[in-house]
Design a protein around this nucleic acid. Structure first.
Lengths: 190, 190
DNA sequence: CACAACGTTCAGAAAAACTTGAAAGTAGTG
DNA sequence: CACTACTTTCAAGTTTTTCTGAACGTTGTG
């Protein structure tokens, strides 16, 4: 498989990954395509490279800018805009996590906090189990929330990772992963 | 808002959450509906409760069983099957994470490991940036992988959470979250 | 064995999500 | 200001995903 084929597969993979972080495949594909190139590209190049319509490219780039995943720069003396991918992976993860948290987790927590007292006020016994489950859920979401919050505010990914990796009890047949782990930790903290 | 209305909103919320963990809304809705009840239910009740077709209920329940989120139990002396939601949140999270990891992350890692050496073998200089990005990505995915692996194999959620919460540097204006955190930690380790 | 009571399957309908392309907007230029 | 070179928008079309329902399979019963 040569470089061109790898690039193509990579873009395909990245496109299909879109669902995972909540954007349409084309949008994710544009980001992947940008990542696979060493230079920024303008809309026409993206159109040509991915066989997309002008409109699709425009919308994908807008979305990517909104996620903080690409930067746009105007070429002086022209209306052309060059798009470059943000390639700091940590920043990418942070942006995605932050936006999804706001969009998805925060509303959940709000709902739970509103529902639980109302359910508890209702004396019907068949609600007890439901209320209890909601309470457990609230606790878990709050916990997850504070972990994510801490990640967003502060520590680096590798920091976070190392804490977890080294701080927890060992000796459960983990040897196989040690090599990968060290490589990962070293590379993630450049 | 009375209990019935809360139940309804909860099911709606849970349905919309389906995308988040990778199942169709109806499937997620069935799980939410089961969670909102204190007793197991059979297919007919689910059909009636959610206005779904027989087929949809059957498929949703199969899927939920495959994810390890509901248990099925036959009523003795009848063909009827009662479905009960697994309500151990930690188990739920673990199952979802495990399945998604297998389906989505593992293939990514395999691809990266295959592509990187091939790209490095290609002398064309415009591949250097791409290769470098793939390496960074590999490192991050491997790190994430080992964290997830550890979570799947071992520590409890609250364990994991506490390690992170208490082990990392403090003093960045975190006071506001302390209350929520303690409640969460206490409730998650019953 | 035949019938009743359920569960399962899957081709096709319905709905949702995505993309296109043509029209409209805007910045540079002579 | 008129013209060109771009980008943005959005209604309509296309593709993908999800749901339905009728036909089929199984288990229990008399």
């Amino acid at each position: 498989m040569d470089a061109a084929a790898i690039r193509e597969s990579f873009v395909r993979l990245w496109s299909s990954l879109g669902t995972f972080w909540g954007v349409p495949p084309t949008t994710a594909g544009v980001f992947g395509w940008l990542l696979s190139r060493s230079e920024p590209a303008d809309a026409q190049e993206i159109m040509a490279g991915l066989e997309l319509s002008r409109g699709a490219v425009s919308m994908a780039c807008r979305e990517l800018r909104a996620w903080g995943l690409v930067t746009a720069q105007r070429v002086p003396g022209s209306r052309r805009i060059l798009y470059a991918p943000v390639d700091d992976l940590e920043k990418i993860v942070r942006n995605v996590v932050q936006i999804r948290k706001r969009r998805e987790w925060d509303p959940i927590l709000e709902n739970l906090r509103e529902w639980i007292p109302e359910l508890e006020a209702d004396p019907a016994p068949e609600n007890a189990v439901f209320a209890e489950r909601l309470r457990a859920m609230e606790a878990l979401v709050e916990l997850a929330d504070s972990i994510v919050e801490r990640f967003l505010k502060g520590g680096t990914v590798s920091n976070l990772g190392l804490k977890l990796l080294l701080g927890t009890s060992r000796g459960r047949g983990e040897k196989a992963r040690d090599a990968a782990r060290s490589r990962a930790a070293a590379a993630a903290e450049p």
